[in-house]
Nucleic acid binder design. Sequence first.
DNA 1: GGCAATACTGTACCGGCGGTACAGTTATTA
DNA 2: TAATAACTGTACCGCCGGTACAGTATTGCC
Lengths: 211, 211
Amino acid sequence: MKTQRGEDRREKILQVSEAIILQKGFSATSIDDILDGAHITKGGFFYHFAGKGELARALVERYLEEDAKLFDGLAARAAELTEDPLQQYLLFLNLLAETMENLEDVHPGCLVASFTYESQQMDDTVKALIAESMLRWRQSFRDQLERVTAHHPAGEEISLDELADMLSAVIEGGIILSRVFRDKMALVRLIRQYRNYIRLLFAGAGPWDAR
Amino acid sequence: MKTQRGEDRREKILQVSEAIILQKGFSATSIDDILDGAHITKGGFFYHFAGKGELARALVERYLEEDAKLFDGLAARAAELTEDPLQQYLLFLNLLAETMENLEDVHPGCLVASFTYESQQMDDTVKALIAESMLRWRQSFRDQLERVTAHHPAGEEISLDELADMLSAVIEGGIILSRVFRDKMALVRLIRQYRNYIRLLFAGAGPWDAR
DNA sequence: GGCAATACTGTACCGGCGGTACAGTTATTA
DNA sequence: TAATAACTGTACCGCCGGTACAGTATTGCC
């Protein structure tokens, strides 16, 4: 017997705490910080979450879902717009780059990266969720790449897992560079470079078209 | 009038605190944690550093220097072993990958990334040092890439800054993946993928040699 | 060897934070 | 309208990060 209002405020707590944690880090984020932003009292917070640890778990779970939703959505849109699997993946990357370009500000940061650099604070459940998250990304990108290779044999032998992981790495690294340089385009440009690598691998050094 | 012992113990504090911070994060790292590892008392710590903030500054400065030393060293070794600028850069990347492969354990983490995800804790001096660090990496890689383009025109127009930044991003992202997967080879494989991109760009889709 | 300067040790203290407890109040749903 | 969910408000505690400083040991130099 849950109320809508309850769910909304719980969600608000998650939103606010994620934003603060990405700026200050998990440990440096006090519960009081969250209370201010979420317009809730300490009692209210502890009504929803047993403690900070459970907040972390809920945050990663939520991040996992929303992130998968984003990637799947972009991949689906790409699949609607073109038939060829290679063009689909290249389009997916362009859509991803555009999404990052359309952010109002620099990318707020990745919770997985943030928690990874505070991993000793996290219990095993959270660590497992983080690993699961990364594996999902790999799986998602790899699925698309497998369809590519079925129709476009690469000019050379190449590990699709590595190519998939490379996108994860480029995104994670790109987010860091964007934050350091305070320039959201840093991430965008890096995604496009990765896209160019894919293009070279599967479409050869053909004309610079089909962007 | 400084003593050797003083310098040594200060260095010990920096070593220990860097290792702990990369595991737990800066904020979660208590001074007591550092004292245990460095075999020093609280008073001794505060003799060397005015507070935790100045420790952060000293850590980044030290990281900046040691990192530059590593990259410059590898680039110099590569320059000794071959004449051709492209081969130099490809060799540099192989040396870098080998260095990461020869680590006894997973890469301990990058202080720049760690602090970036706790940036609100850091004062402006530290933030400036972090940005300087990233710019140095770009400069270092870009220098090598410029020599490449002088002798090997790329098959297409390409931004060398972006290519340089891509290596930074691949390393940062690769470190995160390595930590999440607890597999030091993740970083190694990603560096080699970046290397392959460079090869495709400048040497064309030639035979898979010159590794 | 002795004296400065350096490099600490030991102790005491404080405020803040995470977490708890719980009694009372408002909102939502059956 | 009764029961339950969803809080507010307050008071409290123990721990710990951070600070300060007075005293002690170690080192370098003449």
